[in-house]
Write a protein that binds this DNA or RNA. Sequence first.
RNA 1: GGCGCGUUCGUCUAGUGGCUUAGGACGCCGCCCUCUCAAGGCGGAGAUCACGGGUUCAAAUCCCGUACGCGCUACCA
Length: 484
Amino acid sequence: MISDIVRVRFAPSPTGYLHVGGLRTALYNYLFARHTSGKFILRIEDTDRARFVPGAVENLIDTLRWSGLTYDEGPDKDGGFGPYIQSERLEIYKEYTTRLINSGKAYYCFCTPERLKELRESQTEQKLQGKYDKHCLSLSADEIQNKLNNNIPHVVRLNVPANEIVTVHDIIRGTVEFDSNTVDDQVLLKSDGYPTYHLANVVDDHLMKITHVIRGEEWLPSTPKHVLLYNAFGWEIPEFAHLPLLLNPDKSKLSKRQGDVAVEDYRSKGFLKEALVNFVALLGWNAGDDREFYYLDELISGFSLERVNKSGAVFNIEKLNWLNFEHLRQKPVHEVISMLRTELKSSDFSSYEFPDNYLAQVIESMRERVSFVKELLTKSPYFFQLPAGYDEATLKKRWKEDSHLLLSKLRDNFVRLSDPTKEDFENSLHNTALENNVGNGKLIHPLRLAVSGMGEGPGVFDIVAILGKEETIKRIDKALSVLT
RNA sequence: GGCGCGUUCGUCUAGUGGCUUAGGACGCCGCCCUCUCAAGGCGGAGAUCACGGGUUCAAAUCCCGUACGCGCUACCA
């Protein structure tokens, strides 16, 4: 037994930002760990120096933190299995590589990139599988020592045995078999002394007592190499779960060019972490019922790897929008207020002051009309400033010949109100309509236009109640002076 | 080319041999509600369950084959 508790890890490569596919992988690892009262570990796989991006690790951690997926062990949270950054574990990989070489499971390879390239080209030409030809396996001990002494650049390769069936047990896909003859002698240690993913991942998973390897489907084809490696070391093999891919609308692997893929892109567009996490969780998993709205703790209790789908899922932004709307509706007002304040700060209305109870009313009146906090500003700017103008189409439809006269009478009645409530405004308008023998609509629509400049929005009595008597009359006066 | 995985409404999916005239959700359309827009309620269009064989009294569900899609095929992860 690898460990008496579940230990899983999210092992991203810090190439700049957290990919939404990565978020989903992290989420499933997190959910599985929390569901089973296990540990969730963050490990940084930065063994490719050519792709080093400054600040990427910090960014990754920051984004993960934003999404709410807290890890138990990681670069900044030691759990006794560190370091959790692979570039800080080079000596470990070297040591284990030596073990493999000594037992004949791995060997030095001094082939130049040029020879490798030629080999590959000729294989392609003959329509053969591209595979290393074990050329350096036949080197004598003396030859090897000699080249080593002369500092000839070299790598270390896995010595894949011929004619074996390598079996991979996958929780999601069942048993998958590979013919070892189709498995390449994978490079384990690169010439710069860094390990490749394959070596580092197996060594670390073993040393960190990882019980379940939950990762993207793109890793399935290289899993036999990992199994062979575990066997070569004589280590117990963890459980595997290869997750279906997240897809572009054209069904190819989700990538940039076809839309946003970075979690921070969605974050900056105003998507709620609750919505993004909820959405991504449903891309490949469901509880077996009709439920679609979940909070993180609810996902934890319902999650199981057995219910993860096998086929890829298109990242459908429409549904994300809907979930954002649903989550925004459920959000406590005080949280929305603080988000609104952040939006206001960077808006045209940044110079105005609005008390919390005012913003709370605005939010309540607009809640069912917006999917994003920033839409509070774009869909109802009139709560933050005087109407900039009057919508043409609405004007044409709602501003009739008698509108000016009726609105001025309504104004006079509003003036007489003392500290009016929503109902007071409503009664006053009804009475005005009665006095003038017209339907309420003849007053309601011009009033809405006058105070908001638009033809849509919350109930007009809600709007005027929120704006208050003074502001309402001011706006009516302005409309009366501008519109005829 | 080789290896592997996958295939139910446009999309996310339910379905684990009879309960299925294949259910739900998003999106779309219509009606109701209504001061507008939403929300909400009701309804509609939308899937010959990739195709072809088999197994079975019975298959979207099991088996085989084919097609198509995708992934991998680096001293990248």
